[in-house]
Design a protein around this nucleic acid. Structure first.
Lengths: 107, 107
DNA sequence: CGCACCTGTAACCTTGAGGTTGCAGTTCGT
DNA sequence: ACGAACTGCAACCTCAAGGTTACAGGTGCG
């Protein structure tokens, strides 16, 4: 499944608590530089930068240069896409489980 | 957000390719023992057992003992729940971004 | 210009995740 | 009852993820 591997990066990005906190902060503020984010978190700026890189590769944030600072903002599309994919997968599992159960009840 | 931390385990579980393969196999077969799964994958049985433990703690699989073997099966509910949560979060981000954009356009 | 403030990145440390081998304990079949 | 097959688990290895400190490069303001 190429879909799964594509979403793999997103799940990995979402699995880290610090990264989720970065996303929360960005969603609350709309925009923020790495320094500004680091000031509101218990980790150093380089750590935040690394997390932002991961989030960017997963498509969850985008960056915009404004003078000497770089402002990051959140991007909802990948989340929506992954949500749709997961819902479809869950529905598929449900379908399979129902079929197996039916098979077990009618010998 | 307690919801985020609850779903954290699920995202971590879903972020590993081997674990996704385990889920794929289980969904395709309906049920399967750790040994049977390991036979169809390029890793050893203890590795599969560890992955199944992680998946179990995330609520994505359940186990049933049948004689001398333990059969695992897939559980769709957490996936559905996480999908709903992600869709809601994406909608929230969208709402915030729209509000900020509106604010920028009307000074 | 010069200073202050930001970013970019390299070097390094530490921990935990993923994997393996090996062995002891159970359960089924004959 | 005995052996085959499966599970449970401990001990161990390796490597990458998350974190830090330190330093070099741009950019804005007085």
């Amino acid at each position: 499944m190429t879909a799964a591997t594509e979403h793999g990066e997103l799940f990995a990005a979402l699995s880290d608590p610090t990264r989720r906190q970065v996303l929360d902060l960005l969603a609350a503020r709309g925009e923020g530089s790495a320094s500004a984010l680091a000031a509101a978190m218990p980790v150093s700026r380089p750590a935040v930068v690394k997390h932002l890189t991961v989030l960017d590769r997963a498509g969850l944030v985008e960056s915009r240069r404004s003078g000497r600072e770089v402002l990051y903002s959140v991007r909802p599309e990948p989340l929506e896409s992954a949500a749709r994919w997961m819902a479809a997968l869950a529905a598929d599992w449900d379908r399979r489980l129902a079929a197996l159960k039916r098979l077990a009840e009618t010998p």
